[in-house]
């Protein structure tokens, strides 16, 4: 039997070309490792009967009740109460950095695809917003397989472009969020922390639950360079010629300050903050999502 769990490894996943297949493999691999099913409400369990009103889908009529009592009742199922979830994926230039074959954007794609697949599987509606300094693409939340395919297509076509401006796009995004639901932000968050936090605040203000997946490359976290290096800045930053060893401590400190500030900001807003390095297995993100989903 094929060990699906290995598809949780981004490096393995990278070898598979189709994103839909990747997403399925991730989820299957993830679920194969769990002892009980995580699906909730996705079962076709009967919940209650209600009287038929014109417009109801005739497929849901309980013909057995009609045969016994000649009255039209419609069977009601739990899945109708499912969640509306938006994935906010950062496609700025900085996301294109990767010390290995899987860069941050690629990793984020897998993550987004896997989450979308998982959501659609359990009848949750999933929408997608691609952004950099502005919203690049918005797909409204739906919970159908064709919709999933659309999302996966958009994900695979997403290209890194400009600098991130999370605050700017948060205004745009909130207009789409009519219902209460879940917003999952997938980004390296390389922007000013005030702008990021204020953007997140606005989304929270709309009554949305938020999970932030902070995607970082392993090299960004460890800064393991030894040789003299010319660092060419992405997102319009200038280049820097330096001995990385002289800068490592200070760089790591600056980065840690930044990250901890974001984390504290998230904590204050009761936002789930999950820092993920691109060398980590994808199940970290899925577990974080499912834990959150359970609480909703």
């Amino acid at each position: 039997m094929e060990d699906y769990r290995r598809y949780l490894n981004p490096q393995v996943l990278n070898k598979i070309s189709r994103l839909d297949l990747k997403a399925r493999l991730v989820v299957e691999g993830y679920i194969a490792g769990l002892h009980r099913s995580p699906y909730r409400g996705v079962s076709q369990e009967f919940a209650a009967h209600r009287e038929y009103v014109p417009g109801d889908d005739l497929r849901h009529l309980d013909w057995k009740v009609f045969g016994r009592s000649d009255r039209l009742y419609v069977k009601q199922y739990e899945q109708e109460t499912n969640l509306i979830c938006y994935l906010l994926l950062d496609v700025s230039e900085s996301m294109s950095y990767g010390s290995t074959t899987v860069n941050k954007l690629e990793y984020s794609r897998y993550l987004a695809a896997a989450l979308s697949f998982l959501m659609v599987q359990q009848q949750d509606a999933v929408g997608l917003v691609l952004f950099d300094r502005q919203v690049r693409k918005t797909i409204p939340a739906r919970s159908s397989t064709p919709h999933l395919n659309l999302i996966l297509k958009e994900l695979s076509e997403a290209q890194p472009t400009l600098k991130t401006d999370f605050k700017a796009i948060s205004d745009d995004v909130t207009t789409h969020l009519a219902q209460k639901g879940l917003v999952i932000v997938i980004s390296d968050l390389f922007d000013e922390p005030e702008r990021i936090l204020s953007g997140l605040e606005r989304i929270r203000a709309k009554g949305q639950e938020v999970i932030v997946f902070n995607i970082l490359d392993e090299y960004e976290v460890r800064f393991p360079f030894e040789r003299m290096t010319r660092f060419e800045g992405m997102e319009e930053y200038p280049q820097l010629f330096a001995d990385p060893r002289t800068l490592r401590n200070e760089y790591l400190k600056t980065l840690e300050d930044f990250l901890s500030r974001i984390r504290r900001g998230c904590l204050a807003e009761r936002i789930d903050y999950v820092r993920i390095s691109t060398d980590q297995m994808l199940d970290v993100a899925l577990t974080a999502y499912l834990a959150k989903r359970e609480r909703l």
């Binding site: 040789r227 003299m228 660092f231 800068l247």
Partner: peptide
């Protein structure tokens, strides 16, 4: 020689690196 033999890296977390470099240039 070490200064001559360098690698080039396109770097995303540039603002942190620049901040670190700017702060420590003299000390370094």
């Amino acid at each position: 020689l070490n200064r001559q033999r360098y690698q080039t890296v396109r770097w995303a977390a540039m603002e942190f690196l620049l901040a670190a470099s700017h702060k420590n240039r003299r000390r370094i």
